[in-house]
């Protein structure tokens, strides 16, 4: 109905999501000492993942507003689903 479709990334409940390029992703995993299966996941069908165009296997950086820390950065790995 509305002329332009609402972008879910503008909703106040949705924190900033960014795609992480592969070289950087490997670096991050090394620094955290994790293998990808240990990361929290986000599905490829997630509305925000679709909006930023991330593909399964990619890392997504999420910058949350936190009441205690001000800002926190977390990573999720995109999984099929």
């Amino acid at each position: 109905m509305s002329p332009k479709k609402f972008d879910v990334r503008e909703h106040k409940l949705v924190p900033k999501h960014e795609r992480v390029p592969l070289p950087e992703a490997t670096e991050i995993l090394k620094e955290l000492g994790l293998d990808p299966t240990q990361l929290p996941q986000i599905r490829a069908s997630d509305p925000v993942v679709k909006a930023i165009g991330a593909k399964p296997g990619e890392l997504v950086r999420i910058i949350r507003e936190s009441e205690t820390a001000g800002k926190t950065v977390v990573y999720r790995i995109v999984v099929v689903g």
Binding site: H11, L13, R43, D46, P47, V48, V49, I62, R76
Partner: peptide, 10 residues
Amino acid sequence: NVLGIEAARQ
């Protein structure tokens, strides 16, 4: 479903 898993967490 509409806004994604991170919004659901919040």
